[in-house]
Design a protein around this nucleic acid. Structure first.
Length: 116
DNA sequence: TCAGTGACCAGAC
DNA sequence: CGTCTGGCCACTG
């Protein structure tokens, strides 16, 4: 299974009220150095439907830029899920998603498949 | 084939 | 806090 399909799969299991960093997503997809490709994938909509507002950088800072229609959309979406956004940033200690062992095992099985 | 480009990252100031 | 650097790598023209 290629990187973007993996990404779609992993993104689909980010729970409400949690966030992940680009780098961690890449890691969870089995491609530790592909953090930039995660951003690229979201920008170009290669990962299918994806809760892009739950993705922040490794410092917890919201992507800003032209990520969403207006600068505040990501913050509003997160706050709607009860994620505190303080000064354009979230507390990763509090809100970063760490997949359960079962999740990790399930993902590994899915990755083994050639197609989906 | 090749240089330029990122919704990134870690580390150094 | 902020800015810069080198590293990273798929994609694009």
């Amino acid at each position: 299974m290629d990187f973007y399909k993996r990404l779609a799969l992993v993104g689909g299991m980010i729970p409400e009220g949690k966030v992940v960093s680009y780098g961690r997503l890449a890691l969870l997809c089995g491609c530790p150095h592909n953090a930039r490709q995660v951003g690229y994938a979201l920008k170009t909509d290669r990962a299918g439907s994806f809760p892009a507002h739950r993705v922040v950088n490794s410092s917890g800072i919201l992507s800003g830029a032209a990520a969403f229609e207006t600068m505040d959309v990501q913050r509003l979406l997160l706050e709607k899920e009860s994620v505190e956004v303080i000064d354009r940033k979230v507390d990763l200690e509090k809100y970063e998603w760490h997949p359960s062992l079962e999740d990790a095992i399930w993902l590994r099985e899915q990755f083994r498949e050639r197609d989906i």
